[in-house]
Amino acid sequence: MSSTRRTIGIGLAGLGRMGRIHADDLAGRCATGRLACVQDADPAVAREAGERYGVPWVSSFAELLAHDDVDAVAIATPTGTHAELTVQAARAGVDVFCEKPISLDRATTVATVEEVERSGIVFQVGFHRRFDPDWVAVAERIHAGELGDVALFRTSLRDMASPPAAFLAGSGGFFRDVTVHDLDVARWMVGEVVEVTAHGAAVSDPEAFAAIGDVDTAVVVLRFANGALGVIDNSRASGYGYECSTEIMGSRATARIDAPHRRNYEWRTPGAATTDLVKDFQERYPWAYAEELDAFARCVRDRTTPRVSGADALAAFDLAEAANLSWRSGRSVAVRYAGRGYELAGATV
């Protein structure tokens, strides 16, 4: 990479839903990162995207890594390929932004994090809420001590409708796919967790979720090392819209991040007031997704440490595993942060 470049050329691997979101952002919303090249397992998809965005396209990840205009890569391919591609890039000395999760297997996740650390590349994982202006502002004030001692953390993450069965089958399960975001926010805003208790249910389609051994609704209770409590409620099928809201109650203040509306007005008629709701995460977080890529590009340019590391991704993964174990066993699970990931009952999660 030429240090004289004003922007960082990012090669994008994977052009599914998240890949398209990242492509749009790199092509139009980012100031430091720019779309340099696209790649997909389907060459026709890569070609179409390259023509649409006016950038080169390639058919293999190896070609993407070797492209002259690529300074770093963003991996938005299917989950099962994340670890392999990250390691391939690390061994080539190419910086990586990787969508979560790194892997659905803990041993593979640990091995990937270790490979990244050995290589010395910049490695950032896609937990987008850490880059949303509302969450960032609240986290900064909490960490500055303005909230005082945290007593209660409460957060909701609810999708409007459940994703297709094909996605669910490969998602890794409810807690790894959905709750993991709230678990990362909990660590970021409040601190390390010492106990996880989870309850789950299949409400929207009991037979379909029973067939894959999963749930569509859950409540997770956390105990933090600093004495605070946390409550997380999640749903894959709320029906009314997409919601992501958080409240943190402290000894000096309470911070609340509400789910924003599509438009900043309400329509009032006798006995009722209505307002539009966002329908999915893309509508809720357009600037967070752009900022996480721009923040990654700045880290590549300045050789600084990303806000979300591989170790952070591993910790959130371990807490999701603890929630899954709690739900399946019907008991609370004690955990201990071990510097890299969590341990439970004297063993790794």
Rank of each mutant, 00 (worst) to 15 (best):
A273E: 06
S326P: 08
C98Y: 04
F153M: 01
V116E: 08
R20A: 09
D71A: 03
V110M: 15
E115Y: 05
Y337Q: 04
V58M: 08
T254F: 05
G310Q: 08
A186W: 00
E291L: 05
W287F: 11
D177I: 00
D24G: 03
E63F: 11
A44Y: 10
A44I: 04
F131D: 03
I8R: 03
G148V: 04
D24I: 01
E140C: 00
T275M: 10
F153Y: 14
A228Y: 07
L325P: 01
V180I: 14
E343I: 07
E292W: 01
R129P: 12
N264S: 10
S251D: 08
V96Y: 04
A295D: 14
A62R: 13
H128A: 12
R284D: 14
A313P: 00
A272D: 12
V122S: 05
R303N: 03
S329C: 08
D184P: 07
L26D: 01
V219S: 14
V87T: 13
A295V: 14
A76T: 15
G145P: 06
T108R: 15
V55A: 11
A49C: 05
M189C: 09
A151F: 10
C98F: 03
R34Q: 13
D276F: 11
Q39G: 00
L147Y: 07
V178T: 12
R223Q: 13
N234I: 04
L65V: 06
P286E: 13
A225C: 09
V125S: 03
R256V: 11
F281T: 09
D149V: 11
V136M: 01
I10Q: 03
K100N: 03
R256K: 06
T304V: 11
V125K: 00
T275N: 06
S3A: 11
A202E: 04
L222E: 06
D95S: 14
L152G: 01
N264C: 07
T79I: 15
V125F: 02
S309F: 02
T79M: 07
E292D: 13
A144V: 08
E343M: 13
S332L: 11
G310I: 10
Q88N: 04
A253E: 14
G230I: 05
A169V: 10
V122C: 12
F175S: 00
R303L: 06
I21A: 12
Y53G: 09
S60Q: 11
S309D: 07
A347S: 08
A83N: 09
H128L: 10
R284M: 14
V333P: 02
P164A: 11
V221S: 11
A83I: 08
H261S: 15
L168I: 02
V308M: 12
E292A: 00
M1A: 10
E63W: 09
A107W: 03
A288P: 12
Y342N: 05
E117Y: 04
I232G: 09
I10M: 06
E192G: 04
V231P: 00
V231G: 02
P163H: 04
A46R: 09
A288V: 09
A345H: 15
T275Q: 12
V190S: 01
T179G: 02
I142N: 02
T77I: 04
S251E: 07
T155S: 14
G80C: 06
P133F: 12
I121F: 10
V278H: 13
R252A: 11
L26N: 02
A139C: 05
S309A: 08
E51L: 12
V194M: 04
S326Y: 04
G172H: 01
D184L: 04
Y337W: 15
D40Q: 06
C244K: 14
T4V: 06
E266Q: 10
A290W: 12
